[in-house]
Design a protein around this nucleic acid. Structure first.
Ligand SMILES: [Zn+2]
Ligand SMILES: [Zn+2]
Ligand SMILES: [Zn+2]
Ligand SMILES: [Zn+2]
Lengths: 136, 136
DNA sequence: CCCTTAGTGAAAACGATTGTCAAAACCAGT
DNA sequence: ACTGGTTTTGACAATCGTTTTCACTAAGGG
């Protein structure tokens, strides 16, 4: 039904996009567009904030980065594996671990179908204090 | 530790707070502060937008309403049962069903502990098309 | 090299939420 | 009812993350 391939619009290889991607490669925490912008500046490869936002948007659309909206409404991004998964995030240091939950997936679908809902999707994230941060 | 009692600050029962609560009682969808503000105005019992936000904040702190942050960063509120639960929300009409998932709760705790995390919390929401909306 | 077109970014616009602060509503205690 | 102190209200300004604008730059195919 819906259009097939996500129609990945034209993609020119620019210095900026490469920079954003490379910074993401090197981090395992979820990071905000603004923080990424700062990191890029410090690292020498300055990129306009607007472009950082656009690059992240594109990467997210292409499914190359995961998006996480905090309780405060901030949007964070992270380079993740491509399979469907969820996250266990440290509330203090941001350290993130990808977790798979086959059981949860089927449970979610079952519950939803049970109520007559279709075209189901879900969000599931775990938060806590990682070993390092909780041993304060 | 910090200051004394959690001091659930004084709570005067005002016309405004009553109005906000009553509107929430009558809805089963998650609603934004602004929409609530409009509903109140239309209904005749006008309440300042600032006050609507404050009332909702208070209700949320008191655990009397559930809070949901959309992917777009908007904060929505809903009068829910007091036990811990999650939601199955229709993407189209907003109709919401509360769901319990004991299995998920234990799974979440187990996974987190397995990775050495403590003080765990989680967010889990299901989205889909309800029977009425999907029969289009 | 040239031209078309996508990409860039500084600055302005947005929009939900929060802060400010003077006026209004409450609530004892006279 | 009158009074003084505290709480609440709400119009308006201020925040702040994100998006839009739009003139300018630079991929990259021919
Ligand atoms: Zn991920
Ligand atoms: Zn899942
Ligand atoms: Zn609820
Ligand atoms: Zn739960």
């Amino acid at each position: 039904m819906s259009s097939d391939a996500p129609a990945t619009g034209p993609q020119r290889q620019t210095r900026q996009r490469t920079a954003v991607q490379s910074v993401l490669e090197g981090r395992d925490e979820f990071t905000s567009a603004q923080d990424l912008h700062d990191l890029l500046r410090r690292q020498g490869t300055a990129v306009g904030l607007t472009t950082v936002y656009r690059s992240l948007q594109a990467l997210a659309d292409a499914g190359q980065v995961d998006v996480l909206v905090t309780a405060e409404g901030q949007t964070l991004y992270r380079r993740c594996s491509s399979e469907h998964h969820h996250h266990l995030v440290c509330r203090t240091c941001g350290r993130t671990i990808e977790i798979a939950g086959p059981a949860v997936e089927t449970w979610a679908d079952a519950i939803a179908r049970e109520h007559g809902f279709s075209d189901i999707s879900h969000t599931l994230e775990l938060f806590g204090s990682c070993p390092a941060c909780s041993s304060g």
